[in-house]
Design a protein around this nucleic acid. Structure first.
Lengths: 113, 113
DNA sequence: AGTAATGCATAAAATATTTATGTATATTTG
DNA sequence: CAAATATACATAAATATTTTATGCATTACT
């Protein structure tokens, strides 16, 4: 039984929060930044990241611009206003997740009934 | 774009921790207990729970016993020793997840480089 | 008697991620 | 300078997980 990945379902939250902080980022930069912040504990795969970014774009949560670096095209993603509102929701959801998991895991921390 | 479920990937951790606390539980009880603890915010579906329990059993993490309640059979799950060791790992993984997500979400909380 | 709750379970569809692969440019290092 | 590594995008197949839908049967409530 391959242990399930607990990070499943968190990718878009992570990406959107990073975009919210950095104003504008490109894919490779996101991958590196996550490794940096989590000290290598979380390594986003490109196969997950790019489809995620494309979905965010399709949903109107990010907008895209291009930059030429030498002869190479770099694709920048930036949160739209709609995307920023969605990010707020995602972060609130994450906070609730953490609170709920705390309640489940540390019964002492359970809120009053 | 249907928002992704952040609880994805956490089900077996939740189940194993509850089993660890309660010594022995049956499926329906797990569903109800999670609703109770999270004040209805997390509702485990049976379609997810039962396959999860069966996988835990196949992996040797839980063992099963039956009880007759009236004319109805109730199936109890109990952590094995191996399952308890796995639960410890899962909980450590969850703590790391929360720390990493905190580092990603609240840059102020980031650990020293 | 009919509805809701208890209790198990599976299957189809939807969703998400990992792994593998592909293409191309740029930089570092022996 | 050639080879290895890093940068940078992307997609497809396989895998994993969950939601939604369905089914069966018993028990409690109204």
């Amino acid at each position: 039984m391959k242990t399930t990945n607990i990070y499943t379902g968190s990718l878009s939250t992570i990406v959107m929060k990073l975009l919210n902080e950095h104003d504008s980022m490109y894919g490779y930069q996101i991958v590196k930044r996550v490794i940096e912040i989590t000290h290598g504990e979380l390594q986003i795969t490109e196969g997950a990241l790019y489809p995620c970014l494309h979905k965010l774009e399709a949903a109107g949560f990010v907008e895209v611009s291009y930059a030429m670096i030498g002869r190479r095209t770099r694709k920048y993603y930036k949160l739209t206003e709609k995307g920023t509102r969605e990010t707020v929701k995602k972060l609130a959801e994450l906070e609730r997740y953490i609170q709920n998991m705390r309640a489940l895991i540390h019964p002492k921390f359970r809120q009053a009934e």
